[in-house]
């Protein structure tokens, strides 16, 4: 590929499902210099899509960097394979000489779990996680560990940032500006609107509605406490509790590097 076939930067935004990845990725991708691809491996899983060759990936998604020279890819940790492919693609892009970065998006795992249950019950056609049981709780948190471990093992290959859903909701403007500075480009005023793309607006899932010009957080504090109290004997819930504590640490007291170190120790 020639130099003009490559973006100026490539940013992988990745995090567990229901962790605000869509909100934060939409905000990031709404910058006038950024073009974005949402969950290419998750959406293409039925067809076995797994291209990590960047020339093929660019062609598959009709990417053109003439007006939007910065490319962002959003994927979740729903499937370990998606994470493997995303990281492999990022590594291939970096090997070609393009500046490559990673943004790890995290949220209190209990809130993510409850959000997943609500979405599955009320909005999704595929009713996969509608009941809160010891088995479903254990399964949800168990599935977090391996993808997070893979991300931790690879994040240091790139410049990276860690952003929590809560800190983003608390300070969307400064957090967006911080993330955009990774590329780096200055935040644009319209990014504060937190608007989803047109496809998102058409979907019933409230996560898109909540990002329509602002953030309306659902207060799940009591439900989270109840969940922890009920299932704290489950080993993977202990892991989730430690993860929750780590995510909640004040970003002004712990650097992203230190947080990644702590997360690595937790998931290994």
């Amino acid at each position: 590929m020639t130099v003009t076939d490559m973006p100026k930067s490539f940013t992988l935004l990745i995090g567990p499902p229901r962790s605000g990845t869509t909100l934060i990725a939409n905000t990031f991708m709404s910058h006038s210099t950024v073009c974005g691809v949402h969950e290419p491996y998750q959406h293409g899983r039925a067809n076995g899509y797994g291209t990590t060759d960047f020339a093929d990936f660019k062609a598959d998604h009709s990417l053109d960097f003439t007006d939007t020279p910065n490319l962002a890819l959003k994927e979740t940790t729903t499937r370990l394979r998606n994470v493997e492919l995303s990281l492999e693609l990022a590594q291939n892009v970096q090997n070609s000489g393009t500046y490559t970065s990673l943004i790890l998006i995290l949220r209190c795992p209990f809130e993510a779990f409850l959000s997943q249950v609500e979405a599955s019950r009320d909005h999704w056609e595929e009713k996969k996680l509608t009941d809160i049981t010891e088995e479903s709780v254990a399964h949800f948190f168990d599935r977090q560990r391996a993808p997070l471990r893979l991300i931790c093992e690879n994040a240091r290959r790139f410049h990276f940032r860690i952003v929590s859903y809560d800190s983003f909701c608390a300070s969307p403007e400064t957090e967006t500006a911080r993330l955009m500075a990774l590329i780096p480009v200055p935040m644009e005023p319209h990014q504060k609107d937190l608007m989803p793309d047109a496809a998102g607006l058409a979907l019933p899932d409230p996560k898109f509605a909540s990002s329509r010009g602002g953030i309306t957080k659902t207060d799940r504090a009591m439900s989270v406490d109840h969940l922890i109290e009920t299932y704290q004997h489950v080993p993977s819930v202990k892991f989730a509790m430690a993860l929750r504590a780590l995510i909640a640490l004040d970003v002004k007291k712990i650097t992203d590097v230190e947080k990644l170190d702590a997360l690595t120790a937790l998931v290994l």
Binding site: S171, E173, T174, A177, R178, A181, L182, P184, T255, D256
Partner: peptide
């Protein structure tokens, strides 16, 4: 440089 912005100093 891990650039960041403070809410009080936009």
């Amino acid at each position: 440089y891990d650039i960041w912005f403070d809410a009080g100093l936009p």
